[in-house]
Amino acid sequence: MCRSVFFFGRVPTMKRPLLSVLSMVGVLALAGCLETMPAPDRPSPPQPPSKKPAMCTREYAPVCGEKRERRQTFSNACMARADGYRVIGQGECRR
């Protein structure tokens, strides 16, 4: 009976280092794929809250806004904040 044909689950000693290296490479490759693949059950990281409003109404309640010492009149406070201005007073800006 030939030993190289029937080894009954035992790997010859010459092939053990090669198999261990190949199995390690395979495990690392699969682990890398799992981390980069998007998963529907994995929640996305929370986004920081935005200081800008998502949507403004068209009501007319004029305010004066200021950004970097520049003043501008807006139709309402929401529109001023949406453009990055800080509301400094009610009504139109005085020139």
Rank of each mutant, 00 (worst) to 15 (best):
R42W: 09
V5S: 05
Y60I: 08
V21F: 11
A54N: 07
P40A: 02
A77F: 09
T13E: 01
P12G: 07
T36C: 05
S4Y: 05
T13Y: 02
E92Q: 15
C78K: 02
A61L: 12
R3W: 00
A39H: 12
M37T: 11
S75F: 14
R70V: 10
Q47D: 02
G84T: 07
F8C: 04
F6T: 02
G89A: 15
E35Y: 10
F6I: 03
R3Q: 01
C64P: 02
P12R: 10
V87I: 13
C93R: 03
P40R: 07
T73E: 03
A39G: 09
G91R: 13
K51P: 06
K67E: 12
L30S: 08
R58V: 00
L19E: 00
A54L: 11
C64V: 01
S23T: 03
P53H: 07
R94V: 14
S50L: 08
L34I: 09
P43M: 04
C2E: 05
V63H: 02
Q90H: 14
P12K: 08
V21A: 12
C93I: 04
G84F: 12
I88V: 15
P62V: 03
V5P: 00
G9P: 01
R86V: 15
R71A: 11
T73Q: 07
R71Y: 13
F8V: 00
R94N: 14
G32Y: 05
R86S: 15
G26I: 00
P40S: 02
T36M: 07
E66Y: 03
G84Q: 13
D83Y: 15
A61K: 13
C93W: 03
M79V: 15
R95S: 13
V25Y: 06
K15D: 04
E35I: 11
T36Y: 06
D41T: 04
T13N: 04
T57M: 09
I88H: 11
D83L: 14
Y60W: 08
A80P: 02
M24P: 00
V11L: 10
A82L: 15
C64E: 06
R68K: 15
S75P: 10
E92L: 14
P43E: 07
A82W: 09
F74P: 01
G9E: 07
S75A: 15
M14I: 07
L22W: 04
F74A: 05
E92S: 15
M55V: 08
